[in-house]
């Protein structure tokens, strides 16, 4: 079956900035895919090219195997850009009625209002709604035509926890219909919880692509913490260790093979207050998108910069997958 969306080696440069740099990805129908990356990673540009809003400098963007603009004209795609679309002096019902009318086979209005949890707000002016409510109106505009694919650019940015929860409830209601969903986010938990597959991009390039479990496995950023006394540099040379930080007398070792690391620690008689923490997605994310890929030897000495406060905030070396793709 044809892909719902694909980018083939697309590149886009704005002035001196290469926003998207040879990005290739394909999204089969029926998947819910998170496009994850830090601010400025090129997510919005990639989405803009997929939707036919931004012409790529080179490479090809396609929706359902054809020209994105054609897919939009045929009503096969609905989209929610990062911002905008909330206009003054119309009610929710008037706005959604109009948007629905532009499609050949739209969702019935009552159904649309229910899916987006807007039934009670139908006669309110859209510019008088709260941020979360307005976001659900924008979501409703994206699904009004009952499209095969919806593309949402940072749908929950700037929403509070409750509003995010409500929007995701709406989104799941739509996904249950077997539709393809592509959303970008810089919230890791969201990518982890809401998607079948995570595509991590950074600096306009693909950094990782897989389920959240796969990404964690590939990066394998388990942390082994141990209390040390005296010189600690040797810990960095233990099997599996790719980096370390020392905070007081506690050493945090980043390990791709925690079993081997712990065995080696035991053989050295250095097991003191040992603590093994599996990677969370945030570790993986930071590792995959750390701004400067480390090309020299991995850091083995105590860090000299400000000390990290936890496993998720420290500067981490680049993971193996990121290097493969760099």
């Amino acid at each position: 079956m044809e892909n719902a969306a694909s980018l083939a080696n697309v590149t886009k440069t704005f002035g001196a900035t290469r926003a998207v740099d040879g990005l290739t990805l394909s999204i089969p129908r029926g998947q819910t895919v998170a496009l994850l990356g830090p601010n400025g990673a090129g997510k919005s540009t990639a989405i803009g090219m997929l939707l036919g809003l931004i012409p790529p400098d080179s490479g090809t963007a396609a929706l359902f195997g054809g020209d994105p603009e054609q897919a939009v004209r045929r009503g096969r795609v609905g989209a929610m850009p990062q911002e905008g679309g909330i206009i003054a002096r119309v009610t929710v019902r008037e706005l959604l009625t109009f948007v629905s009318q532009t499609y050949r086979e739209p969702l019935p209005l009552d159904r649309l209002l229910a899916l987006a949890q807007l039934t009670a707000l139908r006669d309110r002016r859209v510019d008088k709604l709260s941020g979360g409510q307005a976001q659900r109106v924008r979501f409703a505009m994206a699904i009004a035509g009952d499209p095969d694919l919806i593309v949402l650019d940072e749908p929950t940015a700037a929403l509070d926890v409750e509003a995010r929860r409500e929007l995701w409830a709406s989104m799941r209601g739509f996904a249950e219909r077997g539709r393809t969903i592509l959303f970008s986010t810089h919230y890791l938990d969201e990518a982890d919880e809401q998607s079948d597959r995570i595509i991590v991009i950074n600096k306009g390039r693909l950094a990782a692509d897989g389920t959240s479990a796969e990404i964690k496995r590939v990066v394998a950023m388990t942390t082994v913490r141990v209390t040390v006394s005296g010189e600690a540099a040797w810990l960095g040379r233990l099997p599996g260790v790719t980096g370390m930080e020392v905070h007081g007398d506690r050493a945090s070792l980043r390990s791709t093979d925690p079993d081997a690391t712990v065995v080696a620690l035991a053989q050295a008689g250095a097991v003191r207050d040992i603590e093994v923490t599996p990677a969370d997605l945030e570790d993986a994310f930071v590792a995959l998108t750390s701004t400067e890929p480390s090309t020299g030897p991995l850091p083995t000495g105590p860090s000299t910069g400000p000390l990290p406060t936890g496993p998720s905030t420290g500067p981490l070396p680049t993971g193996p997958l990121a290097k493969e793709n760099a």
Partner: peptide, 15 residues
């Protein structure tokens, strides 16, 4: 006003 509100872009995303 519509351009500033992102409305023209939203319209480009309809058929």
């Amino acid at each position: 006003e519509d351009r500033a509100a992102g409305w023209l872009r939203q319209l480009r995303l309809t058929p």
